[in-house]
Structures are given as C-alpha cells and as structure tokens.
Write a protein that binds this DNA or RNA. Structure first.
Length: 492
RNA sequence: CGGGAUGUAGCGUAGCCUGGUAUCGCGCCACGUUCGGGACGUGGAGGUCGCUGGUUCAAAUCCAGUCAUCCCGACCA
C-alpha cells in the first residue's frame, strides 16, 4: 500500500506494469492488443477459477461450452445488444488463404473463399447461447436452465492494458433462463452476491454492490448489477457484473415455454461474468513497491521453503528437516514449494518470491537446525520472526489466515478512508481533484445530469449502492430531489 | 479511431540535432571463491538499432509509410 493519490497516472501505470513484469504474470504478445498470461499469472487464474466454479456448482449451475463464432445474423437479433457490441467486433470473412503469386513465401486471402455470412468472434455469448436455448426449452419443466461457460472472448478495444483491458480475455459467463421475472431477478442478485463473496473472502477485496444507471447498463439488459472496488490510486474498478436481461433475448431468439397453466410465454434471462481483469484488481489492490502481494487463498504456492547451506552435506541435513515441514504443512492443506535449487542463492530467492507475492517464506539454515527453529517471513508486512519448529504447521496455518484477514482489513480501511460524502458540486470537483476515491453524492436520476458530470469531471456513477440506507436530499448539480446517494468515481 | 510521446542485446539505456555499421549497467555462459536479504573476481558470448521503402558514396542517425507500446480523449469485463 505504498501508493498515494498524488501519483500521476503515468507513474501509477508504470508501477502497475512493473509489478506485472516483476511478478512474472503476463506480457504483451506480438498480436495486437493481446496478452500472454505466463505460468504464474495463469496459476492465479486457475485458483480463481476453482473457487468460483465451486461457488457456481454450489448454487446449482453446470458448465457447458458454446462456439467461438457468432454468425452476424445472430448478433443482429437483439437490437440493443447488437448496437452495443458492433463497434468492437473482430469479423471473419474468409475461410482460406493461398500462395501469393507476386511474392514467394507469402500468403494472401483467397478471394474465392469468401463466407456467405460473416462470422463474428464472440465479444460475449448471449447470441449463440440463446439461439441454442431455443432448442432446449419447451416447458416449465426445462426451467430454470442454469449454465456457465469458461471461455475466451474478443473485444477490439482501442486502448489496452494487461489484464484490465485486452483485445482477447478469459472469463466466465453464466447464462440462465427462468419461468418468472422474480426468479430471474433473484438469480441476478444471487450471482452478484457470489461475486461479492468471492472478492471479499478470496481476493481480500472489499466491494460495493449496486446497480448501474441506464447509461452504464449492459447492452440488451434491463438492469445491470455490479461490484465496484477501489484501487490504490483512487480509481474505481468494476470487478464483476450480473445482468437481468428480462425477456429481451427470449423474444429476439423466440425462446418460449409452456407454463404449468398451459400458457405460452417467453422465458426470463440473466447473464453474469467475471474475467481475468480480476487479476488486475488483485495487483492494484494489494501490491507494494516490492512486487505482488497475494492473498493466501489465491496463492498458487502459499509457503516457500528456502534452505540456507554450505555444501552438499549440510543441504542434505537441512532438506531432511525441510521436507518434514513440507509434509506437515501439506497435511494441513497448505501448498508448499521447497526451493532447493543450487543455481540461485538464498537472497536471490527471497527477492524472487517477494516479487511473486508468495504469502509466507520459511528459511532454514544451520543455526535453525541447532536451535530447533525456522525463520518465518510474511509477505504482507515483510515481518520476520524466528519460530520453534514445534507445531509449526498449526502456526503457519494461523499465519495464513492472519495474512488473509490483514489484507482484507487493510484494503477495507483504505477503501473506507477514501469514501467521501459530498453535498455540493464544487466540493465534489475539489475532492475528485485532490483525493480521488469514491464519492457519495445526491443525483437527480437523470441521464442528462449524469452526462454533464462525466463531461465536466470525468467521474461516472459507478453504481447506485444496494446496501446503503436511503437518505433523501437534493441533487448536487441541479438541486432536484434525490432519494439516495449514489457512488461516483473515476474508473478504469 | 483523434492528439502527444516512445521503439537500440533478455531488461534498462547512451549515441540521433551536427550521417562514417553501436555505449554503459543489469542479466546470460565458463572457472574459482561464496551462500542467514538480489555475492565477488577473472575470462567470454550475445545487436540486420521495431518493420518497409526513400535520400546518400555511406543511415541507428535525415525523409515517408507502417506496426507495436505508453499517456490524454472516445469505448469497455
């Protein structure tokens, strides 16, 4: 938490990119706007996947997989959806290349192999999925249909940034169908809560749950719920969304079911997703100038053991002890790496694992063997202490819990210190300029006012918070009545 | 996609204005000494200067185009 709001965007960006590089998470690919997720970065994603996937299964969802390509005619069917995504689609127009007669060794598009209908590389899968659901749903007995897909999508973004916004990204998208609007809304809210719980319990990232204003709504949705998190530079990041789609897609793709009463009706839909952007959130929420800081629950390796030795014989004796510790920790469900490489020195390893964010490091050397101790260092506070080996597994287990909680508390304190309640537009601008962070202020509910604020200050309404007591007041801009404060911030 | 900046070895850079085939640090390799916070010594390897074209006897250097990255804007998980 070394960052402060005075940090210029460029510096913060450099800091962020440094962490991504130093922690060995990802790099730019030679392919425009695309990212290569490196093994350590991907391992974190796999931990996220595993935790989320379990939460989805526990709430009755199943996984499936749908095509990468969306025929253009599918995408066109839901008008709002089509409009929203049209500007950022990669389009496949041909299915064959041929040797260039002009230049040896070069390939050109074979103009004789033009597709009759263009295929869009999915920017999201509503269109293909609803086209499929049409065939899966006839009766109320087929409902609810609760499906999730882990996939990649492509959005041709103009400005990219590792993890936060890349042309291709990995995500999870849930698509559900329900017999009633109430049930679909309940599902939308349920999944929002799943995301919030994941963010807080696993990522140690406090989030504010809310609904988007009409301007910020997902293309084709009636209501978009979201979780918003605050980053260390005072900007907000949308960490997940859950959409109530009403009957828009059911009508567009003609998905009807026969109810218990024998009446034919369109189904009610939801969709919800989180992406590899969450890794970006993790970086920006917890990292410090020494590199990444991982919450134990998402660390691919929770404890690393580094031996300190001179010569083969000493390493042998230390390894014996280290492996005992490793086994004991693993029996407590802790993931442990014993790094006995003799190609790197201890200090090098310490720095390396610090940059990668490994929560706990245990060092064992000859002094420890003599004293029956180990040196335990925690990544979040960088504190070191010498611990007796007795009950080390239990102590480390507690330490990991402690780190997880500490990270959450630290992020929560930071977030709460940076929520400002503001009652005048001048004060709003001043806080935004001087401090950044979240601002709670009254707004008259109109798109015009929202647009004006955005144009004049670059801040947007991140959400209309759900878990906040209603408090009537007057709009800070127009003076018109307002029923509750809404959450403003500059956003990623 | 509009405005600005940048691109030289794996990374960070000097050189560019005032053209003459490239500087330094880290890293890498070998050997030795080391090993409780990114070791030290000696020796060594590595670059078609983002790419394409132009000007020139000669281009990292000047010109044009193009691609990529960063910042601002529009857009967004």
């Amino acid at each position: 938490m070394a960052k402060d709001f005075s940090t210029r965007a460029e510096d913060y960006s450099k800091w962020y990119n440094d962490i991504v590089a130093k922690a060995d998470l990802a790099e730019h690919s030679a392919v425009r706007g695309c990212m290569v997720i490196k093994p350590h970065g991907f391992a974190i994603w796999e931990k996220m996947q595993a935790a989320l996937d379990k939460m989805f299964k526990d709430t009755g969802h199943v996984n499936a997989y749908f095509p990468l390509f969306v025929p253009k005619s599918f995408l066109e069917k839901e008008e709002g959806h089509a409009e929203g995504f049209a500007k950022e689609c990669a389009v496949v127009t041909h299915y064959r290349l041929k040797a260039d007669p002009e230049q040896k060794g070069k390939l050109i598009v074979d103009q004789d192999a033009e597709l009759e209908e263009e295929l869009i590389i999915r920017p999201t899968s509503e269109a293909v999925i609803w086209n499929t659901y049409k065939g899966w749903i006839q009766s109320y007995r087929d409902l609810p249909l609760l499906v999730n897909q882990w996939a990649n999508v492509v959005r041709w973004e103009m400005r990219t940034r590792l993890f936060l916004r890349t042309a291709e990204f990995l995500w999870q998208e849930g698509h559900t169908a329900h017999a009633t609007a109430e049930e679909a809304v309940a599902e939308t809210e349920k999944m929002l809560n799943v995301y919030a719980e994941f963010a807080e319990k696993y990522m140690a990232l406090p989030v504010i749950k809310g609904v988007k204003t009409a301007n910020e709504r997902f293309a084709g949705a009636l209501e978009t719920y979201c979780i918003e998190a605050l980053m260390q530079d005072g900007k907000a990041l949308q960490a997940g969304t859950s959409h109530f789609l009403g009957q828009n897609f059911a009508k567009a793709f003609d998905v009807k079911f026969t109810s218990k009463e024998g009446k034919l009706d369109y189904v009610w839909a939801t969709s919800w997703g989180v992406s590899t952007r969450l890794i970006g959130a993790l970086i920006m929420a917890h990292s410090d100038d020494n590199g990444l800081v991982l919450p134990p629950k998402l660390a691919p390796v929770q404890v690393v053991i580094v031996p300190i030795y001179k010569g083969e014989e000493e390493l042998g004796r230390i390894s014996e002890k280290a492996l005992q510790i490793k086994t004991a920790l693993e029996q407590k469900g802790i993931s442990v790496k014993y790094d006995d490489r003799d190609t790197q020195r201890p200090g090098w390893k310490f720095a390396e694992y610090e940059m990668k964010g490994i929560p706990v490091r245990i060092a064992i050397g000859p002094k420890d063997l003599a004293n029956g101790t180990v040196e335990v260092a925690r990544r979040d506070t960088l504190e070191k202490e010498s611990l007796k080996m007795i009950d080390l597994d239990t102590k480390v287990h507690h330490l990991l819990d402690n780190i997880q909680n500490n990270l959450y508390q630290k992020a929560l304190t930071f977030r709460d210190e940076n929520i400002h309640r503001v009652d005048s537009y001048d004060e709003f601008k001043k806080v935004l300029e001087d401090k950044g962070g979240f601002i709670l202020a009254h707004w008259d509910g109109s798109s015009e006012t929202e647009e004006r604020i955005k144009e004049e200050t670059k801040a947007t309404i991140r959400c209309i918070p759900l878990d906040m007591k209603k408090e009537s007041g007057t709009c800070m801009v127009t003076g018109k009545p307002s029923l509750q404060r809404v959450l403003f911030a500059k956003a990623y």
